Amino acid sequence: MTENEPKPKRRKLKITLGIVGALVLVSALANLGKDRDPEPTASASSSEVAAGAREDEASAELEAADADAEPEDEATEEESDATDSSDFEISHLDLGEEMPGGETTVEFDLSDNLTQGMWATVAESDTCEAIEAGFDAYPDGGRVVVVGSYPMTDKYGNEDDADVIRAAYDADTYEKINMDNCAYVGVWDLRDGGQIHPDLLAKR
Rank of each mutant, 00 (worst) to 15 (best):
L110D: 04
F135M: 04
F135A: 04
M118N: 07
I131T: 06
I177P: 00
I177Q: 03
V122Q: 08
E132V: 08
S125F: 00
D161W: 09
W119A: 11
D126S: 13
A123H: 07
S111H: 13
A133G: 13
V185D: 09
G142V: 09
W119K: 12
T115A: 11
D170H: 10
T105P: 04
D126M: 05
N158Q: 12
C182Y: 02
C182W: 04
K155E: 15
N181G: 08
A183I: 00
D109I: 04
C128H: 12
D172R: 11
I131L: 14
T127K: 02
V144M: 10
V145Q: 11
F108D: 01
A137S: 13
T121F: 09
G142Q: 12
I177Y: 01
M179L: 09
Y174P: 00
G134E: 07
T121N: 12
A120G: 05
A168P: 00
G148W: 00
G117M: 03
T173V: 07
E159H: 02
D112A: 08
A123L: 06
D154F: 02
D154R: 03
A133D: 05
E107G: 01
R166N: 07
A183E: 09
K176L: 13
D160T: 13
E124N: 06
N113R: 13
V144D: 06
D136T: 15
G134S: 04
A162M: 09
